[in-house]
């Protein structure tokens, strides 16, 4: 069972105070830690678990700048055998479908039974790449996957629907699965693994290498155009209780008492 895992490096923003960069088309990334996208990390772990049980090799693939090689190396440290970075200035500014187009081209000369991606990137939240990739490769897909059971020539998966309902379906291999967070417990890389991975080679694939016309990828190949980033309008919002932790807590305790909760 050979598996390709498509991952993305994203800035850690959950607890960061973000600033919009001059020009209004991006955020200031300086000072933000870069890491593997959360659901991609679960996709990688799922690939590791599957290949541990059913043999096979893992190819880890990303479309990104040089900094994203860190994510590839960390994935190799955990057990991915081959790493590919889809790298070309022509890919810059691409929307999700343009990104899927480049990844599909990069997959053309890779042998795989299964392609795993995270179901959503925490930065752009598009939730599109895996499903678009499947359509471009003309293979079946499922996304929001929280269970994978490998059978003979097919997988049985559980998709998480609203309200915790699970939709079970069987899908023929090869296919693309968009993996949801929580499906497994991602491991940490060992120090030894990290040391070994630091010396490994990463294959680079440019648009030209893959026979892609630069106009079909990146910003030029995108059907959507980013016009402007803004901070969401602040509505009425919360009544912020000011002061030291003790003072603010005192105010909150008074409010809770007044409302009959204390």
């Amino acid at each position: 069972m050979n598996i390709v895992v498509c991952v993305k490096q994203v800035p850690e923003t959950a607890e960061a105070d973000l600033k919009i960069a001059a020009g209004g088309k991006g955020i200031v990334e300086e000072g933000l830690a870069l890491q593997i996208n959360e659901s991609d990390n679960y996709a990688l772990e799922e690939a590791l678990l599957i290949t541990e049980e059913h043999d096979g090799d893992i190819t880890i693939m990303t479309l990104g700048h040089e900094s994203s090689e860190e994510v590839l190396r960390m994935s190799m440290a955990k057990g991915a055998g081959t790493a590919v970075r889809v790298a070309d200035p022509a890919f810059d500014g691409g929307d999700a479908i343009a990104t899927a187009t480049a990844l599909a081209a990069a997959l053309k000369d890779v042998e795989y039974d299964l392609v795993l991606t995270g179901c959503m990137a925490s930065d752009d939240g598009a939730t599109q790449v895996g499903v678009a990739l499947a359509e471009l490769l003309d293979i079946p897909h499922a996304t929001y996957v929280t269970e994978v059971e490998v059978g003979s020539g097919e997988v049985t998966v559980g998709r998480e629907l609203e309200g915790g309902l699970i939709e079970k379906l069987t899908i023929k291999l090869p296919c693309v699965l968009g993996i949801q967070t929580g499906i497994n417990e991602p491991r940490y890389a060992s120090i030894m693994g990290i040391a070994r991975a630091s010396k490994r080679e990463i294959e680079l694939k440019s648009a030209g290498d893959m026979g892609l016309d630069a106009s079909s990828v990146g910003a030029a190949g995108s059907g959507t155009v980013l016009e402007e980033l803004t901070f969401p309008p602040v509505g009425e919002g919360a009544d912020i209780l000011e002061g030291t932790p003790s003072e603010a807590s005192g105010k909150l305790a008074d409010i809770l008492k007044e409302k009959g909760f204390v």
Binding site: D95, A96, I97, A100, C119, G125, A126, T127, Q128, V129, G130, V131, A132, A134, E135, L136, H141, A142, T143, Y144, R159, E160, L161, E162, E167, S222, G223, T224
Partner: peptide
């Protein structure tokens, strides 16, 4: 933009060559 929609819309966009903005 539901579990149903996210499983459908990107493949519909690719199949028809339509631009897609999600969520």
């Amino acid at each position: 933009h539901t579990a149903f929609g996210v499983d459908l819309a990107p493949s519909l966009a690719v199949a028809l060559g339509l631009p897609l903005a999600s969520d």
